[in-house]
Design a protein around this nucleic acid. Sequence first.
DNA 1: TATGAATGAGGCTTCATTCAT
DNA 2: AATGAATGAAGCCTCATTCAT
Lengths: 225, 225, 225, 225
Amino acid sequence: MASGEGSGEGGGAKPRTAAPTRRRASKEPADRRREILEAALVVFAEAGFAGARMQDVASRAGVAKGTLYLYFEDKEALFEGLVRQAIDPVLGRLEREFADFPGSTRAFLSVSFAHLANEAVHSPRRHIVRLMLGEGERFPEIAGFYYREVVSRGLGLLRAINARALERGEISSDAGLRFPQLLIAPLLVATVWEGLFQRHEALDVQGMLEAHAEITLRGLGWKEP
Amino acid sequence: MASGEGSGEGGGAKPRTAAPTRRRASKEPADRRREILEAALVVFAEAGFAGARMQDVASRAGVAKGTLYLYFEDKEALFEGLVRQAIDPVLGRLEREFADFPGSTRAFLSVSFAHLANEAVHSPRRHIVRLMLGEGERFPEIAGFYYREVVSRGLGLLRAINARALERGEISSDAGLRFPQLLIAPLLVATVWEGLFQRHEALDVQGMLEAHAEITLRGLGWKEP
Amino acid sequence: MASGEGSGEGGGAKPRTAAPTRRRASKEPADRRREILEAALVVFAEAGFAGARMQDVASRAGVAKGTLYLYFEDKEALFEGLVRQAIDPVLGRLEREFADFPGSTRAFLSVSFAHLANEAVHSPRRHIVRLMLGEGERFPEIAGFYYREVVSRGLGLLRAINARALERGEISSDAGLRFPQLLIAPLLVATVWEGLFQRHEALDVQGMLEAHAEITLRGLGWKEP
Amino acid sequence: MASGEGSGEGGGAKPRTAAPTRRRASKEPADRRREILEAALVVFAEAGFAGARMQDVASRAGVAKGTLYLYFEDKEALFEGLVRQAIDPVLGRLEREFADFPGSTRAFLSVSFAHLANEAVHSPRRHIVRLMLGEGERFPEIAGFYYREVVSRGLGLLRAINARALERGEISSDAGLRFPQLLIAPLLVATVWEGLFQRHEALDVQGMLEAHAEITLRGLGWKEP
DNA sequence: TATGAATGAGGCTTCATTCAT
DNA sequence: AATGAATGAAGCCTCATTCAT
């Protein structure tokens, strides 16, 4: 229970002798900012928006509480910054890879899902998804941002995949084109399962996603090109 | 008042304070309890655990703050009571229906998904799912309870459905038996979509679940019996 | 920590089936009142005025919370009643015994101190003294009452004892006449020691009071009559 | 929006609240700590532990409520700090003086009692004694601390005084050696009297302690060396 | 730019008191 | 007369935010 952070009686101990800060390598502001966001990701993910304490973010980032406010207007701006910064990389790469991918749709999906399985279980970004699930409804602006930057782009990519596969005659059903959500739904399950039920029943994410690909491709009328 | 000392003489008397009252139409304790839980569901769903205020729960339930504590030890117990009471009905019905269902697996799934689509979008219980997603990791005990009462039973039912279909020769793949999570994954998406992205892009839940059933059955090697 | 009293979640358990009260032998109101005061003595002594809970007093007295208010205006009146009722007996007896006592002053003191030693350690009234010490300053009215009914009478008795002894030539100093407080001071120590330091160092109250009598009598110039 | 849900759109933003500020002349933490303890002594002495309000301590110390918690874990730690800091000085001085005292035991007692009479009536430390009497039983740890730091040392000093006096042949009885409590008992009375009964009957503390010394020395068989 | 002591609004919880039964 | 569910003021404590250094 004890916050571990607080003063615990001993303020008396001459804080005059302060000053020899831990880190200090004349760091770029941008680095500092990133460190804060990384710390915030962990803390917000662990405790949710309301439950997260600025002090904990600061401690984990190795800065003083006040420093946070030099980089972010307030707690909410920090949350927003958190979501903003953590979403770029994966999708961009997939979009580019898709444009250039020479092989079959099956092969592309196989590669993509392997990527994403890893994201869903190991990447710190997985917390972002859980944060959006838990807090998104209370932050419509951030939810909107997330929709634009991640969801709609992701679904767009999936639609493109389906469209090309249809065009090429690799699949015969347009169900995936109409409901691309069906394709990433299992990833949501995987992301959530880890935190909630892993201790009760382990989930073989890799295996599940392979099964998912298999079922879905066959279900969409896959025909080897 | 004088030197900041206070009363000194007769003031020693009245320590704490009194409390007037307004009475409400008498009601069964069980009703009262249910009202509180209903109010709590709304408030917790809106604000999350840490963000929810007991005062708001009380106001919405039409009782005084203190009354909550006559029915629940503390905020956490209220949250637990919330999850406990809201999970029973649906699953029990499906389990019973499955045991007695005379038609094909396809028909059963069709009926079940219609039920669940409704649950996922319109029932107040849908908030429970979102609460579990957002807060479950911080309440392992409640997550465990939810796993036992809902998740494992639900997956068990799905496994039974798959097993019977295989046995009957309706499907040929055991992928659904091994990863029943794949079958409900779209429901999770539907539940979450409503709160987060509905305003940006409407989702036809009914249509999506039909597409899901179609894809999945075909993908599992469905053969009309 | 758990108050043991509270509702603990379970209000739901049909309190309709209530009614079969524990005690119920059609008791006299005076008895009921006394029971409440006895319970209050214990509870107030244990927790102090502010720390004592009406609920605890009620439980210990075997009545409902509301019943307390049929016998006492409020918490403070209960406290006052407590002090009032618990002080009579001892002093009255000593005063009467003194008037009739045939033996020497030494003998009378010996008997009295034996009485008082018992009071100070075993009687429930000993708590009254501690309550007065701890809370008296905040309840000047009660302190005044206690002064009139106990302190001044007690000191009066001690003065009378000294006066008679001087008159009889049993002692030669009037110090005890001028400061009768000196005679009961050790009793205060004994009363307080029990609760605070007994576990650290046992105190032989009987022995201490005997030593006190011996020293004091000799110190006052005792001469066997 | 719809069915009494609440804000819905932009309201999700501002969760908690902000906080303006007024700054105080900067001060050493140790000073601040001492100020708080001084304020606490007054407030706790007036109201007892349960009755004291942290807000009152803060106001009297000239700081904000929250500041108290920078210096003390919680209310109990503040109480403990209070007792801890207020006990040192007097005893240490007496112990040293005793070791070096050239004169007779009678002379030493005379000096000591004069000191203590002052303490008992005028020093702010007198409140500590009353707090211990009233609340000590509920804080065994603090009572234990008080026993070790004050009571046992004080009694030890008194035993040493008696032992030396016996050895020197100044007194003949070992009663004071066996029950040193008898020697300070009147001080307890003096300390308590002030707060409770002074308004009803003034007590000449100085005179009483002189009488006490006289009686006791004679009672112990004093013989001018 | 960075710090962290200080602030004070606000949350959870307790409990004296009331009053319908 | 007795009950105990209900009330709501008030207390302890937390923590986002500020600002003097």
